[in-house]
Design a binder for these strands. Structure first.
Length: 444
DNA sequence: TCTGGGGTCCTAGGACCC
DNA sequence: TCTGGGGTCCTAGGACCC
């Protein structure tokens, strides 16, 4: 069955209903989403925390990024800064964790592998979400199949999930939302089975649609579109005029015309690494260490995806919330030849920092971006650089990467990254990484 | 006192070319 | 004297996602 692009659809004279029918028959997407993922990972090894309010914090213990249902009902908002909610947290004995990304990515890997065993046509959309395309498989009963995924994944990994089924990705996100929020669906919602879908859509705000946030919501509200039902039944040309191709695509997807398919994994186009400092920093030396560290981590990522970058951007900033005079600046340098060598990029990063560092400010954050990324194997050989040096550097990087991978930590690093690391991010409430040998849970 | 981090895609506008 | 316009590429910024 041909996929009809939004453009082709817009250009066609055929009645929409013909397309809708064809598309409904042609594709079935399942969106699988882990419930309160970070919180669920923490609970996995701490069953004593079931049914208790838990929150997980962002880097530097700054904001709330994951909440258990109990924490949600206390009114703790997603993204809320921790210090504003100290009272609620204290009065209700809310359990707090710093984010433990090593643990979460290990658990995520388990969940995704389980999903892949059901359907190879998978797009891992984020650490806790994946789309499956089910219509290419021979499945007798799609609902039974989804129910099976639902129970097996929870059983195998211990992580609760929700599943939304629909003929487009946008609709499957909505179906997933319904599965998650309405207990009568028992965690799995097939949108095509719902008889009174209009009644449900009339009760959902446009901001509940994937791709519609504040700005877009305001634009839609201004033309009297408030609910998903309103949006779905509005005028395509008007939507195109007001929201551009992105909005038009959403409109079509809501109407069952699939414009977005499963995406293959592609190499990152930029790799960035930035952190707020645990405490404000004023000295060049400390910030220089942090920058060297960010650069080294980003280069390791670059090598892991077998790519090279042409240049680096370095930036530093004072806190945007500070009452004092603010300063932020960035500087970039392009290399003569693309590289993935940490030492080379660290040197350039420090040149950048010298250009932008100003005395007299308390810095809050620093970061780097590697840009113009291309695949390693299509790298052009330089005429100037010595090939022997190049080979030696590659070997050195491989030794560093292998050792750090084996030890699952940074046992080999550059002196410029520093040892004291006064700038390091705050992570006071971190759980053990239960999935690694040296931190396995103990049974008493 | 204390407010995260890493991405993607799209668009508008400028520079440049013929 | 009359002073175009279309195409392409690049970049910065906006909007959104989790």
């Amino acid at each position: 069955m041909n996929n009809i692009s939004a453009k082709e659809y817009a250009a066609s004279n055929l009645a929409p209903s013909i397309f809708y029918k064809k598309e409904v028959e042609s594709k079935i997407f399942a969106l699988i989403d882990c419930n309160n993922f970070y919180v669920s990972c923490e609970r996995l090894f701490r069953p004593d925390l079931n049914n208790k309010p838990i929150i997980v914090l962002s880097n530097n213990d700054g904001c709330i990024v994951s909440r258990s249902n109990e924490a949600k009902s206390l009114g703790l908002p997603m993204g809320g800064p921790l210090f504003k909610y100290k009272n609620i947290i204290k009065n209700n004995n809310v359990n707090i964790f710093s984010s433990n990304y090593k643990l979460y990515s290990d658990i995520s890997y388990r969940v995704m592998n389980s999903l892949r065993s059901f359907c190879p046509d998978i797009e891992i959309y984020s650490i806790d979400e994946a789309f499956l395309r089910l219509d290419k498989m021979s499945i007798c009963n799609i609902n039974n199949f989804a129910n099976n995924i639902y129970s097996k994944v929870s059983k195998w990994t211990g992580i609760p999930i929700s599943i939304g089924l629909a003929p487009t990705k946008t609709l499957s996100k909505i179906a997933n939302n319904i599965a998650k929020t309405r207990s009568e669906f028992l965690g799995v919602c097939n949108l095509s089975d719902i008889k009174n879908i209009d009644a449900i859509f009339k009760n959902m705000k446009v901001s509940e649609i994937w791709g519609v946030a504040k700005k877009t919501e305001a634009k839609l509200n201004s033309i009297n579109i408030f609910t998903i039902y309103d949006f779905k039944n509005s005028n395509q040309k008007l939507i195109r005029k007001i929201l551009g191709v992105v909005g038009e695509r959403i409109f079509l997807e809501l109407n069952g015309v699939s414009c977005l398919d499963i995406q293959e994994v592609s190499v990152r186009k930029h790799i960035s690494y930035s952190r707020s400092f645990g405490e404000k920093q004023t000295k060049f030396e400390e910030i220089s260490q942090a920058i060297a560290n960010h650069t080294s981590c980003a280069c390791a990522k670059l090598r892991r995806q077998k790519t090279v970058a042409k240049g680096i951007i370095v930036y530093i900033a004072t806190s945007p919330y500070s009452q004092k005079e603010n300063y932020s600046n960035s500087y970039s340098i392009a290399l003569d030849n693309p590289s993935s060598n940490s030492a080379e990029f660290i040197k350039k990063a420090q040149e950048c920092l010298k250009k932008i560092f100003r005395h007299g400010y308390s810095y809050h954050k620093s970061g780097i971006v590697l840009f113009d990324i291309s695949e390693e194997n299509i790298l052009q050989e330089s005429f100037l650089e010595s090939k022997i040096d190049d080979e030696r550097n590659k070997k050195l990087m491989k030794i560093i990467d292998d050792s750090n991978y084996k030890s699952k930590s940074q046992i080999l690093f550059f002196a410029s990254q520093g040892i004291q690391r006064k700038w390091q991010t705050k992570k006071d409430l971190c759980s053990p990484c239960y999935t690694r040998w040296e931190e396995l849970a103990t049974v008493k």
